[in-house]
């Protein structure tokens, strides 16, 4: 009886061992690219419009993991994804400098805006610069909802507060720690201001009582970069796929499509890839 049970247990163990090692031995399918990106590119519908075209052209399938910039870069650092598409220039450069990514390629940009309640209690509509707008919000102690999630938008916002003369205070500054869409909802419920990328705003503005209260300041410019995860550090990533995706994004075709992407009548992203970079890229790969 005991021997029988022993045999059974060892059988189960060995089978599961084989199964597990089988999974390990088998690499992630070569025709799949894992892309970690920010919620803004995904929420706006840009990737949903672009990626099928890429799949058609290249045969690669792209699995999109939409998270905050911080988490996206962390996933790249840990080798959980093959390529990242994010917007936090300083952090991206650090990511590359520390050797987690190969090289950053500029893809496109959009801009940030400040949205707020219709009656504009802080009166930022007439502000001359974004720093002045933030100062007005602070001086009038108007509620301001921050992403507070270490995302690109959050980093941008912190950068802007640093440029302004005032500092956020607990009494009127709320850190939500959630994605852009959610933060827009929270700001709407609380009658608060918030900093948002234009893409997410265009996707949500029909459902929101908020309105654009400040826009068009050079400081609000928001460039997106794409970086392949360093294959030396993580040899099991799909580096070829990552390079194909980067190449497509900065190619004239990809750039045209980014420029043509619309929500309603509004253009969201301005293509900004460097033609020289693409030429060099084409030569190398």
């Amino acid at each position: 009886m005991k021997i029988k049970r022993f045999c059974l247990i060892s059988l189960i163990l060995s089978v599961s061992f084989i199964a597990i090692s089988g999974v390990h031995a088998e690499e992630y399918p070569k025709n799949i690219i894992r892309l970690a990106t920010t919620t803004s590119t995904d929420n706006s519908g840009l990737l949903a419009a672009l990626l099928p075209k890429f799949t058609e052209a290249s045969g690669y399938e792209v699995h999109v993991i939409a998270v905050g910039t911080g988490k996206a870069l962390r996933m790249g650092r840990d080798g959980d994804v093959d390529v990242v598409l994010v917007h936090a220039r300083a952090t991206e450069d650090k990511f590359v400098a520390e050797g987690y990514g190969e090289k950053r390629y500029g893809v496109m940009y959009n801009d940030f805006i400040i949205v707020g309640p219709k009656d504009d209690p802080a009166g930022i509509r007439s502000a001359k610069a974004v720093t002045q707008a933030l100062d007005l919000i602070a001086q009038t102690q108007s509620l301001f909802v921050s992403r507070g999630d270490d995302s690109g938008t959050h980093k941008k916002e912190q950068y802007l507060w640093n440029k302004s003369e005032t500092r956020p205070s607990k009494t009127w500054y709320r850190e939500a720690g959630q994605g852009m869409g959610k933060v827009l909802q929270i700001a709407a419920e609380l009658d608060a201001y918030t900093l948002t990328d234009r893409g997410t705003w265009l996707a949500y503005h029909n459902k929101s009582p908020l309105e654009i209260r400040f826009e068009s300041d050079p400081l609000l410019y928001n460039p997106y970069g794409i970086i392949a995860v360093n294959p030396v550090r993580h040899p099991d990533t799909n580096h070829d796929g990552a390079m194909a995706l980067i190449k497509w994004f900065i190619s004239p075709d990809g750039q045209t499509m980014i420029g043509e992407f619309r929500i309603g009548k509004d253009q969201l992203f301005t293509p900004s890839a460097d033609a020289g970079e693409f030429a060099a890229f084409s030569k190398a790969y």
């Binding site: 905050g68 870069l73 909802v145 507070g148 270490d150 850190e175 720690g177 959630q178 929270i186 419920e189």
Partner: peptide, 27 residues
């Protein structure tokens, strides 16, 4: 808690929503 509280620091961020957030930040 996440849906109703909104995970706002100092106000409605409690243990479970904070864990969810920290994980999403990679911290």
């Amino acid at each position: 808690s996440m849906m109703l509280g909104g995970n706002i620091l100092h106000y409605t961020r409690n243990i479970p929503t904070a864990i969810a957030l920290e994980t999403s930040k990679g911290e």
